[in-house]
């Protein structure tokens, strides 16, 4: 997030006013406004934390052009629910890229939160979480998607995830031989 350095006093005044508010207003790609607790936003999203710290939060709605209203509503909903749940030290995860510990299981409310989403809403939310640097929400949504893959045949996976089979019959047979152990109980 870039901090605009050249706007002088007006900018400073706006920043002070912004600092007084305890919520931030986010604007979806389709122009809908959502309010979220500043504390939760800063804690759960590295991108929003950076914007808040850098003063690039707009009182009239910070533009999040990458995120549609349904996904943003889910993001805000998640932040609110998270703020209301008892903070668990175990859930304060470190950076995804460098974390080498086994993945933490989603909590019950998080499971319910993603279970109610449609396929498209889930995919939108995982992208929004990725875009906003929301590690925990990314964790929870990726976990859900990985659950959707478990126990499914390659054909079923292609159907659910809308993927075209680009292998030849011979190639498929070759890989199948290579991985025969994984098909033991198929």
């Amino acid at each position: 997030m870039e901090v605009d350095k050249g706007k002088g006093e007006a900018e400073e005044t706006r920043k002070v006013a912004e600092a007084d508010r305890d919520t931030v207003t986010l604007k979806s790609s389709d122009g809908k406004l959502f309010e979220v607790s500043k504390e939760a936003a800063a804690r759960l999203s590295t991108v929003l934390a950076g914007m808040i710290a850098g003063g690039s939060i707009d009182d009239n709605g910070t533009d999040l052009k990458q995120i549609g209203s349904e996904a943003l509503e889910n993001v805000v909903d998640y932040c609110n629910k998270h703020a209301n749940s008892i903070p668990s030290a175990a859930l304060i995860s470190s950076s995804i890229s460098f974390n080498t510990a086994p993945f933490k299981e989603p909590e019950e409310w998080e499971r319910k939160f993603v279970d109610r989403l449609s396929h498209d809403a889930l995919f939108d939310l995982v992208e929004a979480a990725n875009f906003l640097g929301m590690e925990r929400l990314l964790d929870v949504t990726c976990h859900k998607i990985s659950e959707m893959m478990k126990g499914k045949s390659p054909d079923q996976i292609r159907e659910v995830f809308n993927i075209k089979n680009d292998y030849t019959k011979e190639e498929l047979e070759e890989i199948r031989q290579e991985l025969a152990w994984a098909f033991y109980d198929d």
């Binding site: 893959m149 390659p154 996976i157 292609r158 995830f161 890989i175 991985l179 152990w181 994984a182 098909f183």
Partner: peptide, 10 residues
């Protein structure tokens, strides 16, 4: 084992 099966997807 799941990952290996997923190699057949594409």
């Amino acid at each position: 084992d799941e990952l290996c099966r997923l190699r057949l997807v594409c």
